[in-house]
Structure formats: C-alpha cells, structure tokens
Design a protein around this nucleic acid. Structure first.
Lengths: 254, 254
DNA sequence: ACCTGAACACCGTTCAAGT
DNA sequence: ACCTGAACACCGTTCAAGT
C-alpha cells in the first residue's frame, strides 16, 4: 500500500509539517542547492515543462509519470529523484502555469481598471488552457509565482486605501472568483447554442409549484453564460471593494 | 484503451450532446422509468448513499468502483447497470451532497441576511465534509438539488430588485465564492498556528525589492485565514449586490 | 554512486461465459 | 434475461539488482 491511506478520514484537514503545498514545504523548496542534482540532463525544469506541454496538448489525463518518462527518455523511477510524488509535481506545474498566465497590465490604470484587466487576462488564459485550470487546487497559493500576484494585488489594494489584512483578503476573494468561475463552468459552456437550448428546456420542464422563477424566466436564466456570470460577479466584488475603499477614506476624513 | 482518449486536446471545452452533467444529460435522466430497473436490491440510490459514506469516512480516494461493489455485496460490473461511468456517479453523488448541505434559513430575514445565512451554512457543511467539497466541479450545477438552490436564490434576488438575468448571475457568483473558498483553502488552513508561523516566515524571507508589501506586512497577511478571506469576500460581493439593488430602485424611482 | 527493470498494489471498464 | 469472473489496459510508487 503506497497510495494514500484510505483509513484516515478527512485527511484534507489534517496538516502534516511537510505536506506538499504547505508553507513549510514551500520554505524547504526555497533553496535550489538542496534540490538541484548534478544530473546528466534531467532537471526539475525539464520535467515541469514537459508536464505542462502534455497537459495542454493531450489533457490532464495524459500527465502521467509513464508518459512523462517516455517523453523525457528516462525511466519512471528517475522522475522520483526530482519530485517526491506526482502531487508535488502537480503543484510545481501549477505554479509555473500561473507565471505564464499573469501578464503585466498597462501602466497608468487606477486600482479598479487594473484589477479588471488582470482578472480578465488570467481568466482568458485559463479558458485557453482548461487542463491547467483543473490543476489549481489552492496548493499553489504559496508558490513564488502566486506570491508575485499577491504582492501586486495587495500593493494596489493598499494603495487604494485598504488595510493590509483587507487587501490580502480582497486578493484572495478575487482569485477565488476568477479560478472558480472557470473551473465550475468548464463542462457547461452555455455559449454553445445547443446546450443553451437544452438548458432552457430543462428549466421549462421543472415543476412550476416548486420552481416558479426558473420556469417563468427559463429563457433569461438559460441565457446567462459563464462570461456574463463572471463579469457580474467581478463588478459586484469590485463595487463592494469600492465601498470599503470609500469607507476607509471617510474614516480618514472624519 | 477504454479511458479517455489522450489524443483529444482541450476536450473539456468540446461539448458532446450527452456528456455527463450537460443539460441534455440531466434532461434524459429526468424520467425515472427509463433508468430504474426492477433489480433485486441494488439501486442507484443505494450506490449513491454508499459512495457518499465511503467518501466521508475514508476520503475521496476510497470512492472506487471496487470498494463500492465490495460494500454493496455485488460485482463491479453490476454497478455499470446503474451508472454509465464513475464520472456519472460522481455527479449524482455531488447532487445528493448538495441536498444535504442546504438547510432552509429561518423565516423573516431580509435578502442579505438570508444570503449570508445560506452561504455560511453551506460553507460550514463543506468544511465538515472536505471530500464532498472536492467533488464539486460544476457538473452538478444543473442537478435537481442545485436547481432548488438556484430557484430560491434567484427568487430572493429578484425580490430584492434585480432582473432575472442579474439574479441568476449573482447566484452563480455567490456559489463560486462559497465553493471555491473552501476548495482553494482545503490544504492550507491558516488556523493551524504552526502553519501560520511558517507562512509568516515564508513571507519574511521574500526579496524585499520584489515583494515589499509581503515582507513589511508579513504577520498581517499571514494572519488572514480562510474564514476571514471568505467573510470579507462575502461582504464585498453582497455590498456590490446592494449597490446594484439600490441602482435598480433609483431607476424605478427616477 | 547512480540509474532502472520489474514488480506491487492498485485503478475504470468491458465482455464472454455462466445461471 | 440477468449477472459476474476474469481480463484488459492502464495507474503511482518502490526497491533489488544492475552498471
């Protein structure tokens, strides 16, 4: 039995000191000298790059240790000299992907326009790389590339007038909305007209006594795709942050 | 090769008419007569119940067709008389779980208090059942129990003054925040003091030239746990919706 | 010292062969 | 007609045995 012990219920909540993705794990990874091996050619970077390519070209199902070894021309066991497990690799690949998805916004934008620009940009990247979106599970939040994003978001929100704690919370909530919005709509893109029609039919066939709104507004509600849902959520969230920003300003003025 | 074809890139975006979780799939499932078989004792309900129990007691890794068959006292192949694939079963179990996680709010609350009550209640349920949280991938959004939740949320938001489209978008954004907040923090609960300390150390060791905010506010930012992040995000989102509600009211007044 | 073939203990899914 | 044992084609991970 080398897989995860099925006898530990709710293990997701149990924190072991060096669980991949934890702060101590990222801390330990910090020193490249301890993990870089003077190898012939196989490197963690090469593994991560190949994994990302496999992921993009053939979907998340193709990112297996076997295919990875095959594409890299090494044995499966060799991979374990660079990563402790597939889970670890997943986190490293996710962090890499975040670097690719984050583009610097044009200069001169106010905090709100910049947040919108970054949010739409990252969402667009994930839509173009759906398998990457499936990889993001929160374990990459403390990775170097995520932290670059947090730094910039926190800086902007503090600049707008929020406290450091609120700025961090706002950055987290925004990231949750962006990534969640893509993930929870991956298999349900209502921009497909056939799917949208089927969705409307599904709503219309509901019991009008238990679902009066869905039945009456079936066409309206079926017409709300992931794009509209995301844009509305983004507007609501940023409107709320704007309220908080003004509240801070009022407090300072008062 | 009976698994998913690795040769179809980005297949998550390709919609086939009867992909599990799609509107047409849920539509087809609507008629119980076509799927209920006069079986000796094995039923879809029994399978889903057992799956949910396995999930809760032994984690998501334990929800395999083999263990399911073992616990139900049948062969693996028998399971395929009730579900077409493990994917299908996952969606059905997710829909079941949503029913369990949704509790009716106390009567007499205004739209905002009710939204907060429901959001905190569902988040609390997911925190108590982390493996269930991992199951939610959006494919269950069109299931009967999700639709009950959408009906009630849309009804309240329309009652507050939003258009049906906006109400549907608001419900979706809210669900995204709740589920995403739990999922993206499952492995990173900052309420563990050791983890929080390690997080602060991680921030303090960043390069102050590239991460001035993270270094300066390390303690503050490390102190923001998933609870605070969720509560702030919820407040921002509902503040934003409140702005939209007032905007609608102003329009009607003007 | 470094690498890996082969094995171990699992998967989801199918179907020929049973009753 | 209904059910299933056994097989197929995969997994991630380990380690004794090679060089």
């Amino acid at each position: 039995m080398t897989r995860e012990k099925p006898s530990s219920p709710n293990r997701a909540r149990i924190s072991s000191p060096d669980r991949p993705g934890s702060a101590s794990w990222w801390l330990a990874r910090g020193e490249p000298s301890t993990r870089r091996r003077r190898n012939r050619m196989l490197s963690l970077e090469a593994i991560a790059d190949t994994a990302l390519r496999l992921l993009d070209e053939h979907g998340i199902e193709a990112m297996t240790m076997r295919r990875l070894a095959e594409d890299l021309g090494c044995s499966q066991s060799s991979l374990y000299r660079h990563v402790r497990s597939r889970d670890e690799l997943t986190i490293i690949v996710a962090d890499q992907a975040i670097r690719l998805g984050m583009q610097a916004p044009p200069p001169g934008l106010d905090w709100r326009s910049e947040a919108e620009w970054l949010a739409r940009g990252f969402r667009g990247f994930l839509l173009g790389h759906p398998s990457v979106a499936l990889l993001l599970r929160g374990t990459e939040r403390l990775g170097p590339n995520s932290l670059l994003g947090v730094e910039s978001a926190v800086d902007r929100f503090i600049g707008a007038g929020l406290s450091p704690r609120h700025a961090a919370a706002a950055a987290g909530a925004l990231a949750t909305l962006i990534i969640g919005s893509v993930q929870f709509n991956l298999y349900l893109d209502a921009t497909d007209p056939g799917e949208q029609q089927a969705r409307q039919a599904l709503y219309e066939r509901l019991d009008p006594r238990t679902h009066p709104r869905m039945v009456r507004h079936a066409a309206d509600i079926a017409g709300v795709g992931s794009e509209e849902e995301f844009e509305f959520g983004l507007k609501m969230l940023l409107d709320g942050i704007a309220v908080a920003v003004r509240g801070t300003a009022d407090q300072l003025d008062g």
